[in-house]
Every structure is written in structure tokens, then in C-alpha cells.
Design a protein around this nucleic acid. Structure first.
Lengths: 199, 199
DNA sequence: CATGCTCTCATCTATTTGTTTGACAATTTC
DNA sequence: GAAATTGTCAAACAAATAGATGAGAGCATG
């Protein structure tokens, strides 16, 4: 089922792989992102993470203090990453689409976030800044009768939807949520929807 | 942490509780709905389910053939329930709000569905019927440039949002997702949004 | 009241799983 | 280049957990 059937690690360090803690850390984080985003914290197995990284599972304890430590570190990293997303210059529609594409290209972050939300884990993310949305509203990018906060939440919801409710996509559209067809269709429709919200 | 510290079940059948398989089944299903919707399949513990139901955990095997059987039965039940939701007569806005209130009153179904989606479980739900949406569009309830399928998916997304991304609600609105304040505000905003989509 | 069946429970067991331990190799430091 | 530190691994360990076993109570039917 997994790539490595018996971990035959005969040639562990062909050349490149001498001993490199930074590399190991990175490999574990990547593998953990795969596993956790796929199965959630409770469903993920440290053995699988280690296998995926091609490393010994003990290293998870060594580097991150255990399964939970690794999970937390992953959350922190995601936060750092997401913080670089605001771009006040771009029009709202473009911002949404940019975010949507990111979500399509790598749904792991969103899946992880939803999993954290479902398990009720409380991250200490700061209060979202709405001044930008209000500015856009004043500039006519958003209808006056709408609450910027609500529109923002709606955007989160529709961007995450393909990842959080793939079954609904299949049910409604009859195509795969990760197919180019759906990608294009959803993107175009979201564009139109936000245009409707501007009028 | 749990209600029964040591399960002191001294008076097991005070009066009402003689021996009633139907009651036991129902209790287990209810408890399972709580646990699974809260922690997902992998995170839920049969012991906790049994405790919550005030019954012995072996009964889960007895009635449902094990943890997984119980989980499946829950999914089936939810499908049966959701099938009774269509109401072609009501205006679209009211339909959405009705669904939203249901979700607020008991988010367990939605949480369960999202969990199933995240774990990649494939239910065999039939293809969604869009003819109703198309009729509404023709009747002017929905702008012509919008894809009925996309609007439907958006509705699912925004209705589920408070349950699937409570952290976002706190972050953006600064209030609790299940507070009456948020309920009212979100409902009102969704009304306005769908009105924008009709124009 | 006996008998068979259904329902319930406490205990045990096998397995899974995250972590610990101790050995050893690689790398750095002096 | 020797010693100490760091990185890696395999095997053992301990906790948790789902399911199995067998005993026994409730309830019907003769």
C-alpha cells in the first residue's frame, strides 16, 4: 500500500544523503503535512510519516518531541505562510482568485486548517483586520448593504468548499473536484458572484 | 471529565429501564452521533460512546457489529434524514435559511459529513437534481449569468461554514459561532447575499 | 415453574501505536 | 587524529483500545 514495502533501506546514503539534520527536519515536516492533511491528527500514524520521509520514526521524537510537537510545528509554519497573503493593492476579485488557486494547487493547508477547526484546537491567531475590506467597500468594490466580515467569511467558505466537501462537488457538478473542468468552472463562477456582490 | 466517574451503575433499572433493545440502540446511536461528530471516526472511542449512552461498550458490537458498523449506520440514518429537505414551493431564500437554522440547531450532521469528506469516504448519494434550481433561475429567483450548480455549492459552503470553520468566525467577527448574535447576523447577511445574486 | 431466547455486563485478549532505550555512525571540536 | 557531540537506527516497552468470551439477568412461551 505504501511506497516502501519493507523499507529495504540498503543504500541509505547513496551520495547526497550523508547526514543532514536540516534535510531530515524538512523531510519529516513535508511527510507530516501529507499525512496529517490527509488523515488528521488522530488518523495519522508516525510510522507512516517516517516511512514517507524515508527516515526512522524515532527522529520525530528527536526533532519535534513527538507526534504532537510535529503537528504543532506544522500549524505554526502554516500560519507564518498564510500571513504573507494580504495584498491591499490588488482588486478584491483577484485576491480571491489568487487564494483559490493556491487552495487548488495545494489543498493540504486548508485541509489541515479544517481538521484543526473540527477537532476544536484553538490557535492563537490574531483578530482578522477588516479595515482593508471596509476600504474596499467605501471604494465601491462591495455593495453598501453587506457586512465586510460576512463577505470575508463567505470567501473562506467557498474557497475551502472543494476541499471540505468534495462529495458535494461530485453530487452537484458530476465531475471531480480536482479536475481542470471544475477548477475553471468554479473560478469563473466565483468571479461572477463577487461581481454581483459589488453591484 | 465524563459524567460517570466509575460507572456506579448500582441501580441500573430504576423502573423505566427494564430491558429494552430499542432504547439501547437509540441511546447508542445518539451517543455515537455526539462522539463521532465531535472527534471523527479515528478520534472517537467506543468506551466514551458507551459511557455517554450509559451502557456497556460490548453492546456496540452486539447491535452494530463494532465501531465501524455503528459509524456506517449513522451515515445511513443521516442520508435518510437529509432526503426530506426539498421543498419546491418555498422561495429560495427561505429554503436556504431553513437549512441554515437546521445546521445551527444541530451541527452534528454537517460535522459528520465534513469528516467523512475529509477522510475520503465515498457515500453513494445520487446525483443532485438541479432542475429545481433551473426553474428558479427561469422564474427570476437567480441571475441568468450564474450557474445553478455553483450557487448550490456556495449555499452548502456558507451554511456549513460556522460548523466547519468556527475559528474563522471568531477571528473575523470576534464572537462565538454559536452565539445568538452571530446566528442572527449571519442569517441576515446570507439573505442579502442571495438577493444580490437574484439581481 | 421450567426452558429457551434475548439482552446486558465485567473481564480478558490481541493488536496497534507512540515513546524510550541503548547502540552506533557521522560530524565537529580541540 | 582523538574526544565529544550530534544524528540515526533497530528493538524493546508501556499505554490504549477494539473486539472476544463467557456468565448471568430479564422475559416470553410451554
Amino acid at each position: 500500500m505504501h511506497g516502501t514495502s519493507k523499507r529495504p533501506r540498503r543504500a541509505p546514503t547513496p551520495e547526497e544523503r550523508k547526514q543532514c539534520p536540516e534535510r531530515s527536519r524538512r523531510l519529516l515536516l513535508e511527510a507530516a503535512m501529507d499525512e496529517f492533511s490527509e488523515k488528521g491528527f488522530a488518523g495519522a500514524r508516525v510510522q507512516d510519516i517516517a516511512d514517507r520521509a524515508g527516515l526512522n520514526k524515532q527522529l520525530i521524537t528527536y526533532y519535534f518531541g513527538g507526534k504532537e510537537g510535529l503537528y504543532r510545528e506544522l500549524g505554526r509554519e502554516w500560519l507564518r505562510r498564510e500571513a504573507t497573503f494580504n495584498d491591499p493593492a490588488a482588486p478584491f476579485e483577484e485576491l480571491l482568485i489568487r487564494y483559490l488557486r493556491e487552495a487548488f494547487d495545494d489543498p493540504r493547508g486548508i485541509r489541515l486548517a479544517v481538521w484543526q477547526a473540527l477537532t476544536g484546537e484553538v490557535g492563537d491567531e490574531p483578530r482578522e483586520d477588516l479595515s482593508d475590506m471596509r476600504r474596499r467597500q467605501a471604494a465601491g468594490e462591495l455593495a453598501d448593504d453587506l457586512d465586510p466580515a460576512a463577505v470575508l467569511l463567505m470567501c473562506y467558505a467557498v474557497v475551502s468548499a472543494p476541499a471540505t466537501m468534495p462529495h458535494a462537488v461530485r453530487q452537484i457538478f458530476g465531475i471531480e473536484p480536482d479536475s481542470p473542468e471544475f477548477r475553471g468552472r468554479w473560478e469563473e463562477q466565483l468571479r461572477r458572484i463577487v461581481r454581483h456582490l459589488a453591484a
